[in-house]
Each structure stands twice: as C-alpha cells, then as structure tokens.
Design a protein around this nucleic acid. Structure first.
Lengths: 107, 107
DNA sequence: TTGTTTTATCGTAATATTGCAATATATTAA
DNA sequence: TTAATATATTGCAATATTACGATAAAACAA
C-alpha cells in the first residue's frame, strides 16, 4: 500500500500522468516559463533566476528532461536546455481530444 | 526541508502547477477520460470502472474537484460528476501561450 | 423508526517527493 | 599537470501522496 498502482492503468493514461507530474511543481513551471522567455536557448543561469539551490534545480531539470519536456545539449562546460516542441504538441493534442469530446456534451 | 517552497513562486506558476498536479495520476486521467466518454454526466459507477477501492476513488475525485477540474452535484443518494470546461480552457490557454512563445524561437 | 445505498472521512502503512550540504564528474583554461 | 567553472549525484531529513479497511454521514425506502 502506498505505491501508485500504475500497472493497472493504460499506457496512455500513465504517459499523460507522467507528463503532468513533470509539470506539477511551480519551480518546473518557472523553468519552462524562463526557457520560453529568453531569445536563444540559454543555459545554466536558471540557477540565478530561481530561489533554489543548484542541486535542487539540477533535479528539477532532470525531471523535465526525463519527461522529454526539455532537452539539453552540452556546450563547453555549460549545458544548453530548451523546450522540446514535440512533447508540447503531445499535451496539446490531449487537450484537443478533451475539447472535441466536450463539444458533444452539455454538462 | 522537504516541503515545497511554493511561497517563493508566482501565483500563476503555483496555480498551473496545482492543475497539473491534479492531473498527475493515471487514476485521475482515467476518471477525466471516463467522464468524457459517457453521454450524460454520469455518476458513481466510476468506482466499478477503476481497479481501486471506493475510498481511494473518492480521494481522487476530491483532488479533481478541489482543482476545479470536475464539479459534482448531488442527485439523490448519488453524486453527478462532470468536467468543468472553464478549467480545461485555462489549461489550454496556458499551452496557447507556450505555443505562441515557441513560434518566435528556433531551438 | 430501521434498513439500504452512496459517498466521505479517519487512521495508518508504504512509498514518493522536495530540498540542500557535501561531494563527484566533466570540460576548459593556464 | 593543476585550477576554475558548470552540472550531476549522493545521502539524509522533512513532508506529501497513495491506498485501503473501518467507519461515518447523508439521502431515500419501507
């Protein structure tokens, strides 16, 4: 007891839940927001933008990277993180499906 | 240590994170999916559709209701849950913003 | 009233997340 | 090589989530 019974749910439901879980922390929303606000795919100064220690931010970045929401490429000693548009598309499609099904209902 | 430093982030970032957190469990995705699949806003048989005990489902429903993703109206001894389109709109708008910002970038 | 049905809450155990200091790793510069 | 810089990992404590049995609460039926 205590552990999530993810085996009991469909792969698609688990996948969407994982994507939303990756976005379920304000620091990770802020990271995505920051990555969208800079002209180029800017790197490690995320640490200076958030009120969290470097290891904590590294973990949040790893969570976003693990969910394929961002991707990072090594650039010298720094790493250049940027949004992965494919994953954004996937989430948008999910809500497109919800929107479509909602239109056929009253509520 | 351990607790989320939500005070340190903007209200909007916290709000979006809360919405995504409400959707970050496969059971809750499945509940939303089920509510979208039935013609009318059907009620308590969600319990029979998911491999979870009734108290657990009640908690998941409460989490969705608390995030304003679903709303429930008392219907005799049953409760009729259905999707709240306003909250779906809010999330869609967030991704609309992301989409808009992404278009002005290369990555 | 009593019994039935439906949903919510309590209590508790198992597990997961969050945050950070300390440390490790990797790349560049000198 | 050594030093400096940038990011990742480890280890641990605090907190949060998940799940369910037991029980409570609310609405209706008889």
């Amino acid at each position: 007891m205590g552990a999530s019974k993810s085996e009991s749910f469909s792969e698609e439901h688990n996948e969407m839940a994982s994507l939303f879980k990756a976005l379920s922390h304000p620091a990770r929303i802020a990271i995505v927001d920051y990555l969208l606000s800079v002209e180029t795919c800017i790197c490690g100064d995320i640490v200076n933008k958030l009120p969290l220690a470097q290891p904590t931010i590294s973990q949040h970045l790893a969570a976003l990277k693990n969910a394929n929401i961002i991707k990072g490429t090594i650039e010298g000693t720094a790493i250049c993180y940027c949004i992965n548009p494919n994953t954004i598309n996937k989430i948008e499609n999910h809500f497109g499906m919800i929107r479509h099904k909602l239109m056929n209902k009253c509520c």
